[in-house]
């Protein structure tokens, strides 16, 4: 079996938001929609204050609550672990947005542009009305992954089969791959380091891991 997951090494993330920008460029998402975003959390009290950068987005859960509540079957989990939305089925009821504990879904009712009322040339070219009035979210760049796999490439190792956010990460904080393959980069990283998943107590079995320390003997 294959389960594609993402690992964010919190020790490496510097909060540069390059992954956010790369995702927006790759998926042409409108203003305010960030399928990949990086939280900038403040910890402690003055003068002992730290910032922690936490990449987040759809966690591609193995037991996704968004899939259960979807009345149309638009949201479904693929055999390779990627949770996708079939935009032609979605009615935009927003039930999935409220079922997601990771605040990963968005709904845009009308076209919006980054620089005023009129679209830029690029925005006009890439505008996709099928994404209006429906729920949208990160799909681990499934088209890229599928195209790469079809060419015999390995997601997470070959950039042409890897999500844009991972390819763009300047510090190597984001890693992608098949957790069911013990030789994959994500499996090795998780074997060698302490990690956690967000809101594990909710039983969603998320496919997004956070590394926070070495696994010292």
């Amino acid at each position: 079996m294959t389960r594609h997951v993402m690992v964010a090494d919190l020790r490496r993330c510097i909060g540069c938001q390059t992954c956010t920008a790369a995702c927006k460029q790759a998926n042409a998402t409108p203003p305010g929609v960030q399928w990949r975003r990086v939280l900038d959390l403040e910890v402690g009290e003055y003068p002992n204050v730290r910032r922690v950068f936490v990449p987040t987005g759809c966690q591609h859960c193995a037991d996704p609550p968004c899939e259960k509540v979807c009345p149309t079957t638009a949201t479904r989990r693929r055999p390779d672990g990627i949770v996708e939305i079939r935009y032609d089925l979605c009615i935009g009821c927003s039930a999935c947005m409220l079922a997601c504990p990771y605040d990963a879904r968005y709904k845009t009712e009308r076209r919006e542009y980054g620089f005023g009322e009129k679209p830029t040339e690029d925005e006009a070219m890439r505008a996709d009305d099928s994404l209006l009035g429906v729920a949208t979210k990160c799909n681990f760049c499934a088209d890229t992954v599928d195209a790469g796999v079809a060419r015999g490439l390995t997601p997470g190792e070959d950039p042409e089969a890897t999500p844009a956010c991972v390819n763009s990460c300047i510090s190597g904080a984001l890693v992608f791959g098949d957790i069911d393959d013990p030789k994959s980069g994500v499996s090795k990283l998780l074997d060698e380091n302490k990690h956690f998943r967000m809101h594990e107590d909710l039983g969603t079995d998320p496919g997004f891991y956070y590394v926070w320390d070495q696994d010292l003997p």
Binding site: D9, L10, D103, F196, D213, Q214
Partner: peptide
């Protein structure tokens, strides 16, 4: 729900 992380990243060790 909001976001929560139960551990802070440990920086500054070799390899991290």
């Amino acid at each position: 729900q909001g976001f929560a992380i139960p551990f802070l990243p440990v920086r500054g060790r070799a390899g991290s």
